[in-house]
Amino acid sequence: MIAFLGMGLLGSNFTKALLRKGEQVQVWNRTASRASALEHFGAKAYAAVADAVKGVSRIHVTLKDDASVNEVLEQALPGLAPGAVIIDHTTTSKEGAIARTQAWAARGYTYFHVPVFMGPANALEGTGYMLVSGDQSLIASWEPVLAGMTGKVINFGPETGRAAAVKLIGNNFLVAFTAGIADTLGLAKSLDVPLADINTLFDSWNPGAMLPARLKRMTSGDYSQPSWELNMARKDTQLFLDAAARANVPLVVIPAIAAEMDRWIAKGHGGEDWVVIGKDNLPTT
């Protein structure tokens, strides 16, 4: 018997996938209709979260944030079976994941933070990525179960909260990437380039393939052999800004990048590779 708390797009599809495998699943959602809708697929819905977790040893959580996880788990406490394992897929703060791991252990329960890079389709199909860290014996015992829910489980080692941190790093990249696409479309609009031509460009040229090499170059600490000088990158960036300004199309990300380029040029790095603008943000090795 499994309990699933949080019947959003991710939680509901996780539940459907478990039901397809013949699992018995008890579900709860703050908006009760979302939970009751899963009864059509074979789940048992409960109006009270404490009732939803009764009689189960494994509880999955897919909620909004630290506050909602804390609130719902407190409400679930009266119904929790001794020694129950709480598997939380919510994207939360690193500090919150650490605090919950410790607090629930003190109460006699296992809280296991397992954030995901999975959309609703992945949850239904059992594809995508789950991130884990912390107690390695716990991970070893639960990895087969988690692997059955996703395409790959990535273990980031024994530090509690590391998985939460890596999830935030990944989401940061996705936010920056998407905002960059928005500015790219804005520049295309400014230059009267149709969407079909943008699709043709990126169907043939995949800048994502450059990511590993770009990351290696940025983190090398040596920017003296440029493939694209900062001065030249800044020149092109001004062309973006000028074109958008003439067409009265707002860009969001590019102006901030231009300001950062100017800061590094003023410090005397104009002749170096432009990835030097990330130098101050390098993490420890």
Rank of each mutant, 00 (worst) to 15 (best):
L5E: 03
L5N: 04
G6K: 08
G8K: 07
G8P: 05
L9T: 09
L9E: 10
L10C: 01
L10Y: 00
S12Q: 11
N13E: 15
N13A: 13
T15C: 12
A17E: 05
L18E: 11
L18V: 12
K21V: 09
Q24V: 15
V25W: 02
Q26M: 12
N29L: 02
T31D: 05
T31R: 06
S33G: 15
R34G: 08
A35D: 08
A35S: 08
A37S: 07
L38I: 07
L38W: 06
H40A: 15
F41R: 06
F41H: 13
G42V: 08
A43K: 09
A43N: 13
K44I: 10
K44Q: 14
K44F: 07
K44P: 07
K44T: 14
A45L: 02
Y46N: 13
Y46V: 12
A47E: 14
V49N: 08
V53M: 09
K54C: 06
K54D: 03
S57E: 11
R58L: 01
I59C: 03
I59P: 02
H60P: 00
T62Y: 04
T62W: 03
T62I: 06
L63F: 04
K64V: 14
K64E: 13
D65K: 05
D65E: 11
D66M: 07
A67R: 13
S68F: 04
V69I: 07
V69W: 01
V69M: 03
V69P: 01
N70K: 11
N70E: 13
N70D: 14
N70C: 11
E71G: 10
V72L: 14
E74Y: 07
Q75G: 15
Q75F: 12
L77V: 10
L77M: 13
L77W: 10
P78A: 14
P78Y: 14
P78E: 13
G79T: 04
L80D: 09
L80G: 09
A81V: 09
A81T: 12
P82T: 05
A84T: 08
V85Q: 11
I87A: 02
D88N: 03
H89Q: 04
T92R: 02
T92A: 05
S93D: 10
K94E: 13
E95K: 07
E95N: 08
A97N: 01
A97G: 03
A99T: 13
R100D: 12
R100N: 14
R100P: 11
Q102N: 14
W104S: 06
A106K: 15
Y109C: 02
T110A: 14
H113R: 10
H113G: 10
V114F: 00
P115I: 01
P115T: 02
V116C: 01
V116S: 00
F117M: 15
F117H: 12
G119L: 04
